[in-house]
Each structure stands twice: as structure tokens, then as C-alpha cells.
């Protein structure tokens, strides 16, 4: 910074070279412009699109309720799926072969089954047993063995009541998501330098704290981008809820209007626009999450640092 001011050096002559020409880029631009114009022309002139009809109907009450169900289902299924995934990932990395094996079997099973099959099955659990009871395992067998009557059960639920509609759908989607999330979380955990866990343990931190405070926050950087993919995939997969069936869901409601009014194309376009909008919303959320967990990895100045630097700058001018 301390350049000798008495003899200012002559500024170097700036280079003014002829830039390389890129005719290919101009040709590509022209082709794309023409294609885009053709596309817009089609949208504007084909009467089948029925834009007025679409706008009038894509925000009707049932559609809005459907959009709400779709969003809530996406968020809940992802939340449960990610929690399940963290547990499964930690199990998978366990030194205990039975625990690790159990997680492997879960992941193997739920990754293999199509979601629509899972949804259909979870909706049919009421047919498997009509009541679901919580209690001591093998209680009746044990009681029989010792010559007692009765059972040790404290909670009884009607299978047909529980496993239908929203709950059945949530169960199927969340269990399926758990398997995918587990693999993503495992990759994230394994991407963290083992020296980090060592340093935490050398400070006397327990395994659980080391995982929660040190390893997982760093794993998040690796976890979030694929988890964003998963969330958008989940948003779209809520349209599979028809297998349960859950009918107050976005895609079903839009299609229902389309078939009732024989305006299939406008409502299909409305569906596309709705999913685009909702996915964009989720992408905004992802952006902020990525920013939050990239702390300490970019070269961005933190708020305190900016304040400290300004204070220094102000101080040094006096």
C-alpha cells in the first residue's frame, strides 16, 4: 500500500487486441430465437389452449385445497423421510453388523418397490389386519405358556380407519423416502474428514454430540443438493396419491376439471404451471439452506467481520 508518491510510475500501455470472432454463437442465437418465436406463436394462436378458461379455473377452491395438500404432503413426507434417513444412515455406519444389516435390508427393500405399489399396499393394510394393537410382543403366546388368560395390550386402532387417505399416503411416501435419504445422508457423513470426529473426541465430546454438532452440519453441504432433488421428486410423486386414493391433491383436482368440462389441454397446462411454481418455491428454500450451510467454505465475509473491518478502516483514517 505504501507506494512512493514522489515519482509516480508511468502507467503501462493497455492492450487493445482485436477479439476472436464467434460466428457460431450468432447462428445459434438466431436459430434459438426463431424456435422461441414459433413456440410463442403457437401458444398465442392455437385456440385449444383456452387461456381465459385456464386462468378462470386453475385457482378454483378445490384446486387451491389440492395444492395445499400437495405441499403439506411433500413437506411432511420429506421431514419424516429425512429423519428416518439420518437414523438409517447412522445405523448403516454402525460397527454392529446386525444394526448395519437391518438398515441395509430396509434400504434394499424400499428402494426396490415403486412408490405407486407402496401407496397401494399401505392403503390396503386395513385388509391385512382389521385392528392394529400396541403391546408386549408375543404376549398371548407367553401368557398361554404360563397358563394365564388375557393379553398385554394398551392401544388398539382400527386398521381401516387409519390406513386410508392422507395417512396411508404419507406412510407410503415417507417410508420410501427414508431409504433414499439414508443413502444421501450416509454419503454426506462419509464425505466429512475423519479428522473432524477425531478432533471432537479429543476434546471430550461424546459420539452423539460429535455427530450432531460437528459431522452432520458439515455433511449438510453434501446432503442438501441431492435432497433438493428428492424434494422436487416428492412434490411430483404426490400425484401418485391417486393409488391410495387421495383425491384432494393438485393433479387430480386439475384433471377432474379438465374431464368434467372436456377442456383437457388447458387443465394439463395448468398442472404444468402449478408444478413449475411449486418447484420454484422449493428451489428458493434450497438456495437459502445451501447458503446457511456453506458458512466457512466460501470467501464470503460474515456480518461481524464486515463490521470489524469497517471499524478498523475508520480507525486507521484518524
Amino acid at each position: 500500500m505504501s507506494v512512493d508518491q514522489s515519482t509516480p510510475p508511468a502507467p503501462p500501455e493497455q492492450i487493445r487486441a482485436v477479439p476472436v470472432r464467434h460466428p457460431g454463437r450468432w447462428i445459434a442465437t438466431a436459430v434459438i430465437a426463431v424456435l422461441a418465436a414459433m413456440f410463442i406463436h403457437m401458444l398465442a394462436t392455437n385456440p385449444v389452449f383456452q387461456w381465459d378458461f385456464m386462468v378462470d379455473n386453475m385457482f378454483s377452491d378445490p384446486v387451491l385445497r389440492g395444492a395445499r395438500t400437495t405441499l403439506i404432503m411433500t413437506v411432511l413426507a420429506m421431514a419424516i423421510g429425512i429423519l428416518l434417513g439420518i437414523v438409517l444412515a447412522v445405523m448403516r455406519l454402525s460397527a454392529n453388523p446386525v444394526v448395519s444389516g437391518a438398515a441395509w435390508v430396509y434400504i434394499w427393500f424400499f428402494r426396490a418397490i415403486p412408490r405407486i405399489v407402496l401407496l397401494f399396499f399401505s392403503a390396503s393394510l386395513g385388509a391385512l389386519y382389521s385392528t392394529y394393537e400396541l403391546g408386549f410382543p408375543f404376549d398371548q403366546q407367553l401368557m398361554d405358556l404360563f397358563g394365564f388368560e388375557g393379553d398385554w395390550r394398551f392401544l388398539s386402532l382400527d386398521g381401516n380407519d387409519i390406513f386410508r387417505g392422507f395417512v396411508a399416503g404419507l406412510l407410503g411416501l415417507a417410508l420410501s423416502e427414508g431409504a433414499y435419504a439414508a443413502e444421501i445422508v450416509r454419503a454426506g457423513i462419509q464425505s466429512v474428514d475423519p479428522g473432524q470426529a477425531e478432533a471432537a473426541q479429543a476434546l471430550g465430546m461424546s459420539r452423539g454430540k460429535t455427530m450432531r454438532r460437528i459431522v452432520l452440519p458439515q455433511a449438510m453441504r453434501v446432503i442438501i443438493p441431492p435432497m433438493g432433488n428428492e424434494t422436487i421428486a416428492m412434490l411430483k410423486d404426490t400425484s401418485l396419491l391417486i393409488a391410495v386414493p387421495v383425491t384432494n391433491e393438485l393433479n387430480f383436482q386439475l384433471r377432474a376439471i379438465g374431464s368434467r368440462t372436456f377442456q383437457v389441454i388447458p387443465m394439463a397446462v395448468a398442472s404444468i404451471l402449478w408444478y413449475l411454481a411449486l418447484a420454484s418455491l422449493l428451489m428458493i428454500g434450497q438456495h437459502f439452506l445451501e447458503k446457511r450451510f456453506s458458512r466457512g467454505f466460501g470467501n464470503r465475509e460474515t456480518r461481524q467481520q464486515r463490521a470489524a473491518r469497517r471499524a478498523r478502516d475508520v480507525g486507521s483514517t484518524h
Binding site: D193, G195, Q196, E198, A199, A200, Q201, A202, L203, G204, M205, S206, R213, I214, P217, Q218, F293, R295, G296, F297, T302, Q304
Partner: peptide, 29 residues
């Protein structure tokens, strides 16, 4: 873990927690 509390360790490759500031690193344990 309790035994390690009284033993400080400094590593060749520092192993600072990259997601925490210098102060947060020191305060964490």
C-alpha cells in the same frame, strides 16, 4: 470422553471445525 477432557490435543493438519468461526471453535467444547 471424560478422560479426554483433561488432555488437549493439537493435530498436524489442525482439524479445526470449518463451519465455525475461530471463537466458535474455541467455545464449542
Amino acid at each position: 470422553a471424560a478422560q479426554r477432557r483433561d488432555i488437549g490435543m493439537v493435530f498436524q493438519r489442525f482439524n479445526l471445525f470449518p463451519h465455525m468461526t475461530a471463537l466458535e471453535n474455541v467455545v464449542e467444547a
